[in-house]
């Protein structure tokens, strides 16, 4: 299974699947120099893509552009195209809330809602008019992130009672509860202790397949271990993109090589 994951194209039967998400000529400006400049990138179905690059390289901007979160910032201007299952996300008739239900994001500064774990998990499904059993859904997504057993099935526990690592996983569970096809994670393991970070990492592994995962991270080891495809961004440009093994061991670009070896260009 893991071999197939690391070799896109041979593991999937039939013709190579169309990407679930595809950005073409994506440019984002917040006034002045573009934060993201003409980025074209495909996100394969069910795989994990790592976005690497120094801070300010456009990882977060790209992640937010993929789920139309940048437009919440008044100065943001986005041009180019993002297609999800063949449909243009930036088409004028598309409801951004609908986009965010299909393409879930866990922001770097994800905040927990005041109240219980259940309230946090139920927020998204309720907003999208979910009519099923919210408790069963909550149990399912909390079990998926390994929180169900840790909280002893107590959904009424205040979210503020959780540890930092548990909170991060609750944020992921909360997004999974909306049943997205693509999961975007911005610095999912940053500022966590090694054990909590390792849990997040194995969680990302376990989620891939059902959903496509995009991880923006400045943690190169996380990117190398967890992803199938790595994209290197620098100053808003896509420098290099390829299978993670190739990018890390034999990068085509000098800039990528310099970044991976810690040499400041």
């Amino acid at each position: 299974m893991s071999d197939a994951l690391h070799d896109p194209g041979t593991g999937t039967p039939g013709p190579p699947a169309t990407p679930v998400l595809s950005a073409t000529g994506l440019t984002v400006r917040f006034g002045g120099r573009p934060a993201l400049a003409d980025v074209s990138l495909d996100f394969p179905r069910g795989r994990i893509v790592a976005l690497i690059g120094p801070s300010g390289s456009g990882k977060t901007t790209l992640l937010r552009a993929l789920c139309r979160m940048n437009e919440l910032i008044p100065a943001a201007v986005t041009t180019g195209s993002v297609r999800f299952e063949g449909a243009e996300l930036y088409a004028p008739e598309v409801d951004p809330a609908e986009v965010r239900r299909r393409i879930g994001v866990v922001l770097r500064e994800s905040a927990l809602f005041p109240g219980s774990i259940f309230h946090n998990v139920a927020f998204g499904p309720r907003a999208s008019g979910f009519a099923g059993d919210l408790h069963a859904l909550a149990e399912e997504v909390l079990a998926a992130v390994g929180l169900w057993a840790e909280v002893g099935g107590d959904l009424d526990l205040p979210a503020s009672a959780l540890s930092a690592g548990q909170r991060r996983r609750l944020c992921i569970a909360r997004t999974l509860a909306v049943r997205p096809r693509v999961l975007l994670l911005d610095e999912p393991a940053s500022a966590l202790d090694p054990v909590a970070a390792a849990r997040i990492e194995s969680l990302i592994h376990s989620l891939a397949g059902d959903v496509a995962v995009v991880v923006a991270t400045s943690d190169l080891r996380l990117a190398a271990r967890v992803s199938d495809v790595t994209a290197h961004l620098d100053r808003g440009e896509l420098v290099e993109c390829g299978p993670t093994g190739t990018v890390f061991t034999n990068p085509r670009s000098k800039r990528t090589e310099a970044y991976l070896t810690g040499r400041i260009p």
Partner: peptide, 12 residues
Amino acid sequence: SLLETGMALGAA
């Protein structure tokens, strides 16, 4: 961030 989180979960 709380408002952004709510929007990110697909709420109006």
